[in-house]
């Protein structure tokens, strides 16, 4: 009840105009799609894949958010898959408990603190630059928090475990003999992964990707803390509408749109990679 009611209220208010307090429930307070239309207004120039087109500003923010979330998901998958494979393969069950604790200890610290920690690490005169200069890798400081860099780094760190755990558990259920059988039949290392391990881990990969994508796209804290002046995350737009403009109606409409569009993106990706919904649940 406490979950459903506010959501119904959100949907309801998204169809009503943003009015001064004394006009609420007055004659101008009728159901309208104006809040949704606003999403498609105010076109601005947008460079995407080398083309320059006019795109409504909020749609543009939405698209960048989705693209960067996909990038974050891809990076996490690329790092997380070998990590999970390493965990299944080399860590003995007796060390596993310790390993899990080491992995989850950072989760005990609030996300805000972790993001601030990254803010400090990545700052212009921060420890990462100092270390790299000390090691002679770079000559002068790099501005890490620039464009979407900071957000991507922060999100990759924050949501890594949401990929590693489902991957790990699906890899663990794979019979080791299958890997050996594939090798015995002449499969190279790469082909063993591609034909045997990855298909087996598909449910884990899919659920990890869906989780990471949704969490990244819906993250507010990391983009707020690690974003730069020229990065905009769609959640920040909603937050501005809700808390700064106090336009709850448009904010509600945008939240709903965001949820629906992200669901479409996930569904589209699943269709593209031939994954069924039942693959995730079992």
């Amino acid at each position: 009840m406490l979950i459903i009611l506010p959501n119904i209220a959100l949907i309801e208010s998204s169809f009503r105009p943003y009015l001064p307090l004394n006009e609420i429930d007055g004659p101008r307070d009728s159901y309208t799609l104006a809040n949704y239309q606003r999403f498609l207004s105010t076109p601005v120039g947008f460079d995407i894949f080398g083309m320059s087109i006019d795109v409504p500003i909020h749609l543009r923010i939405f698209i960048t958010t989705v693209l960067y979330s996909i990038l974050v998901t891809a990076i996490i998958l690329i790092i997380g898959y070998p990590a999970a494979y390493y965990m299944t393969k080399t860590i003995s069950p007796s060390n596993m408990a310790l390993f899990f604790i080491v992995l989850t200890v950072p989760m005990w610290v609030s996300e805000i603190l972790r993001s601030f920690a990254w803010f400090t690490i990545l700052s212009f005169k921060g420890p990462l630059n100092a270390l790299l200069i000390e090691m002679g890798v770079i000559d002068s400081e790099i501005r890490w928090i620039r464009g979407y860099n900071g957000i991507v780094i922060g999100l990759v760190y924050t949501y890594m475990l949401f990929m590693v755990f489902p991957l790990y558990s699906s890899m663990q259920s794979l019979d080791k003999n299958q890997i050996e059988a594939a090798q015995d039949l002449g499969a190279s290392w790469w082909r063993t992964h591609w034909r045997v391990i990855v298909p087996h881990c598909k449910p884990g990969i899919v659920s990890g990707c869906v989780m990471v994508f949704m969490l990244s796209a819906g993250s507010l804290l990391v983009p707020s803390l690690l974003g730069s002046p020229n990065s905009l995350w769609f959640t920040q737009t909603i937050q501005q509408l809700m808390l700064e403009a106090l336009d709850w109606n448009t904010g509600a409409a945008y939240s709903l749109l965001f949820l629906l569009l992200c669901t479409f993106v996930v569904a589209g990706m699943m269709w593209a990679f031939k994954v069924k919904l039942s693959n995730i649940t079992n």
């Binding site: 019979d175 003999n177 299958q178 050996e180 059988a181 594939a182 015995d184 039949l185 002449g186 499969a187 190279s188 082909r191 034909r195 045997v196 298909p199 087996h200």
Partner: peptide, 26 residues
């Protein structure tokens, strides 16, 4: 050499003929 495992280790996500032809695929 070809090894037949105690639990056979057939590939459950492949069809029978794909299982048989796996070595040739490789």
């Amino acid at each position: 050499t070809s090894l037949i495992f105690q639990n056979l280790a057939l590939f459950p996500l492949m069809r029978v003929w794909e299982n048989v032809a796996f070595g040739l695929e490789m």
